[in-house]
């Protein structure tokens, strides 16, 4: 009962927006899709709440009416046709109400599914999201190859435009879930599918892999950065550029370290000889807020720690430890931090 009450209390608080809206919450929709899902959630919640209250009331009423027989043989009760008849009606109508309610919920679920699915624009922003163990490859396909933007883990989208996400996976099944935006979508290896959403309010919304995909499933986060159309286009133009030429001598040395060590076996930095597609594209890595799939902030210390010993931070990750000398490490961090 206490648990149920605290659940109710927490829902009421959430309803009253007393809690911090947060950036990772089903009940704070930032998109019409999540709004439809939230509406269905509250509809079902209040039905269940009413059922719960009625059940407890019936239970308490039956308890209050019951006669306690202290000892001796149980009293013999005469067969009462009238009471049997009433009980039959009560059970029958309760079943009818239950079936009708479940049918209404079923219909509304289907209707909500349709409302979440339906694409309302023929000119959306298309984004290809590919799941990897354990990060998200994000690209904005364009018929001209040099106009294709590739990044990782942070999905920039314009506010108020329909966004189509094309999904695929490189290894195992992942699931794309940003609760403020829309429902979960599985990313299946070798099977491309699509869904769409549209975000109303600018902000950063957190997402998470929602299908267990291996050791670091819990550290496979992403964020959706919703910004105005102008900001989005400026970001896209910046991302289209090749990597910035390093300006300081330390950063120049860092590029040399990057290109002569294991880094270039997995990562791309456009404009240099590093072109492997196995790990995230680092061409503009300094423009991201987080690294290692939303695991660490994008700071010099976190970058250095991640480069030297990623297996301590995310055991099992595909990134290998890199025992660089301190000078080389500082240089490569300086280079990466200059890649705006």
């Amino acid at each position: 009962m206490t648990a149920a009450l605290s659940l109710v209390a927490s829902h009421v608080l959430a309803q009253a927006k007393v809690l911090d809206p947060g950036r990772h919450h089903v009940l704070h929709p930032a998109a019409p899709q999540a709004g439809h899902i939230e509406w269905l959630y509250w509809f079902i919640f209040w039905i269940l709440f009413a059922v719960f209250v009625l059940m407890i009331a019936a239970f308490a009423g039956a308890g209050a009416k019951a006669r306690v027989v202290a000892s001796g043989p149980l009293p013999i009760v005469e067969k009462d046709e009238e009471a049997d008849h009433r009980a039959g009606w009560a059970v029958g109508s309760a079943m009818a109400i239950t079936v009708a309610t479940l049918f209404v919920v079923l219909v509304l679920s289907v209707v909500t599914g349709k409302r979440v699915e339906g694409l309302t624009s023929k000119n959306p922003v298309t984004i290809q999201v590919t799941g990897h163990q354990w990060w998200w490859e994000v690209s904005y396909p364009n018929s001209q190859a040099d106009q294709t933007v590739t990044t990782a883990n942070e999905i920039h989208v314009p506010v108020g435009s329909p966004i189509v996400i094309l999904t695929n996976s490189k290894d195992v099944i992942h699931s794309f879930w940003a609760p403020n935006v829309t429902g979960k979508r599985d990313l299946l290896p070798g099977y491309s599918s699509a869904f769409w959403f549209e975000i109303d309010q600018p902000g950063i919304y957190h997402g998470q892999c929602a299908e267990f995909c291996g050791l670091q499933h819990a550290h496979m986060g992403f964020s959706i950065i919703a910004e105005s159309v102008d900001e989005f286009q400026a970001w896209q133009q910046q991302q289209l550029k090749n990597a910035a030429e390093p300006s300081t001598s330390e950063a120049i040395r860092g590029r040399e370290v990057f290109l002569t060590h294991a880094c270039l076996m997995c990562h791309t930095i456009r404009g240099t000889d590093a072109g492997s597609r196995f790990g995230p594209d680092l061409t503009h890595v300094a423009s991201r807020n987080m690294i290692a799939s939303e695991t660490l902030p994008n700071t010099a210390g976190a970058l250095a720690g991640w480069i030297v010993d990623p297996q301590r931070i995310k055991p099992g990750t595909q990134m290998s430890p890199n025992p660089l000398s301190p000078d080389d490490l500082q240089a490569v961090v300086a280079y990466l931090q200059a890649l705006h």
């Binding site: 002569t260 060590h261 294991a262 270039l264 076996m265 290998s320 430890p321 890199n322």
Partner: peptide
């Protein structure tokens, strides 16, 4: 050599 870690 120097491109991939030895354990790999």
């Amino acid at each position: 050599r120097n491109r991939i870690p030895e354990y790999q």
